[in-house]
Design a binder for these strands. Structure first.
Lengths: 197, 197
DNA sequence: GCATGTGAATGATTTCACAGCT
DNA sequence: AGCTGTGAAATCATTCACATGC
């Protein structure tokens, strides 16, 4: 659930503001959402609140982090060291949420040897072994559309469990592998759709 | 509808492969979707197909482009010339779909003066006038979370109609302005949620 | 015969409304 | 009194199945 992630963000901000308790209503107001929705989302994972009182911010942060699987550190590799891949590798937001990029790969004739964030860009044909040896669970694909399917297949073969794909192609699903598609142009089209409609 | 954008992309690929006709079933197979869904999505905008035959690829591309509002060129500006903003400004996929970045802005003390893709990064306080003078409809926000709300307010004040916001904060809605949120860390959390759940 | 377009059926999600606890 | 947790109701989305037209 992507909503849980947004709740968690807001809770972190509340914690910084030294708020210790919060009600579903307050959360809803600040998120532009419905209070019942928030309660239902949370109650799906357990009874985190106290009736008549609300939720303890710090406690809820802990529980939500656990539910979202970010009470641990995830390692990941980024494939594609072009503009987008480089930006992603440098993006601080990932590390802040516990997603640590431990490898960047690109075609040998591309930007190999380049250093990003203290990581040397390695040739793509070393990716599979790297994933296997280090048991990397997550791959971020920032390669051109033509290359995406093949890289994904190699990564899956090497044991990856989740793929975040920025290339504008649908990857064929594989059992036990969660694939999440994110296409930047499509996001802009959503806007143009609303602007022109 | 983000699905329409995916249909359109596939259609473009089919056109390149010199396919002139396609059925909802074929589209569905290649997209991993349901044929009825596709027909319903399309029929919402008009009767684009021919019974017993299917859809004419080129014709459907034209109609879909129109529905998605990308039968024209949209101008946009990118605010924030950090890693992400720079990558977005250089990203070719936008121009390919008709989204032309005509201005990049950043705080004066930041990367001002830097050149990206032939565009000089301008100080952020010139943004509002630029938007007004050039009637820019779309702003892409790639600024830190703290700055997002203020920049958005200025852009809206200056007449912007759509905002694609990469900062991890919810922007307060404004009448007549379509705001689309896209938070990269949240996308990774979706993956960790599925991997750990 | 074949594939669209669409009402009807099913399924999922969101919201309401209130019982139950502090 | 105040706020959670949750069945029931309402809304929204997807899928089925078939009449309609090439």
């Amino acid at each position: 659930m992507p909503r849980l992630a947004r709740y968690l963000r807001l809770l972190h901000r509340l914690e910084k503001e030294d708020t210790t308790r919060v009600s579903s209503r307050e959360l809803a107001d600040r998120l532009g959402a419905n209070a019942a929705q928030i309660r239902k989302d949370l109650s799906y994972f357990g009874e985190f609140g106290v009736r008549g009182v609300g939720y303890d911010v710090r406690f809820l942060i802990g529980e939500l982090s656990r539910c979202l699987g970010i009470d641990r550190e995830w390692t990941m590799v980024i494939v594609g060291a072009g503009q987008l891949g480089t930006a992603l590798a440098r993006y601080r937001g990932f590390a802040e949420e516990g997603f640590k990029c431990v490898g960047v790969f690109d075609r040998a004739d591309g930007s190999a040897g380049k250093e990003i964030n203290g990581l040397v860009v390695r040739p793509a044909d070393e990716m599979a072994d790297f994933i296997r040896d280090n048991e990397i669970p997550i791959v971020v694909l920032a390669v051109p559309a033509e290359a995406a399917a093949e890289v994904a297949a190699q990564a899956i073969e090497a044991g990856v469990k989740g793929i975040l794909n920025f290339a504008p192609v649908r990857l064929s699903p594989a059992p036990g592998v969660f694939i999440h598609q994110l296409d930047l142009s499509t996001e802009l089209m959503v806007i143009s759709f609303y602007l022109s409609g």
